[in-house]
């Protein structure tokens, strides 16, 4: 209830800034027009495009990042072997690889998923590795005493104990993935909310561009709710 009032206040503030010409009326349409533009027929398709690229990328990152993170956490040698490489690749902003992906793979959903996957990989990898490394030795000792060894020990004790940390990584990755998905659409014209917003802006359909932003925000909010 109070939260809705907060949203109402946000809309009110927007209208106030508009009518006071703090926000240029040309690029800040009335909230009613934005609301009306939410019915734009292209919007659901664009939302689906972003959602699919995001989900595919996140899935890709999880299927590589979590097992690799477990391996890095368990084996000091594998960890040592890959640390330098990880440390060099990780700071590269994923969006910097957009041109590479376009050149190597070409435009399309696969390219987009790969970029999202690259961005999401690092938080998942790092938090899984830390989670596994931080598992209370008492737990693994107990598991060993109860007869679990090797993979079985990892699957029944180590990974479950590292789950909270993996979840943290997943949360970070999920919101980062959405950022990269939208950025990729913006830069390459892949179908999705980013491209929708850019197109509407170029066509002078400013309320529709804002409607795209609102939907992107709602999508982000949803992702946040689902992962936390």
């Amino acid at each position: 209830m109070k939260g809705l009032a907060g949203f109402a206040a946000l809309v009110g503030l927007w209208e106030l800034l508009r009518s006071a010409h703090v926000l240029p009326p040309g690029s800040a349409p009335a909230s009613v027009d934005i609301a009306r533009a939410l019915g734009n027929p292209d919007l659901p398709g664009a939302t689906a495009g972003t959602l699919i690229a995001w989900a595919a990328g996140l899935l890709l990152a999880a299927s590589i990042g979590i097992p690799l993170g477990v391996l890095l956490g368990l084996s000091r040698w594998v960890d040592a072997a890959l640390t330098a490489t990880v440390d060099f690749l990780r700071p590269i902003p994923a969006v910097a690889l957009i041109p590479v992906a376009v050149v190597v793979i070409g435009l399309g959903a696969g390219m987009q998923a790969l970029l999202v996957g690259f961005a999401c990989l690092w938080p998942l990898l790092i938090s899984t590795r830390f989670g596994v490394r931080d598992v209370d030795p008492l737990l693994t000792e107990t598991g060993r005493v109860l007869g679990a060894r090797g993979l079985r020990l990892a699957a029944t004790v180590t990974v479950p104990a590292a789950l909270p940390s993996i979840r943290t990584g997943l949360r970070t990755a999920a919101s980062l993935g959405l950022v990269v998905a939208v950025a990729t659409e913006l830069a390459t014209g892949s179908p999705g909310l980013g491209w929708f917003i850019a197109q509407q802006q170029q066509a002078g359909q400013i309320p529709a561009a804002y409607a795209g932003i609102v939907v992107a925000g709602l999508l982000g909010y949803l992702v946040h709710l689902v992962t936390s």
């Binding site: 913006l186 917003i197 850019a198 932003i213 992107a216 909010y221």
Partner: peptide, 16 residues
């Protein structure tokens, strides 16, 4: 309202 604003992927506002 803050959670919503925070959730907007920042690149989405670039065209505007």
């Amino acid at each position: 309202a803050l959670e919503f604003l925070r959730a907007v992927p920042p690149p989405a506002v670039l065209p505007v």
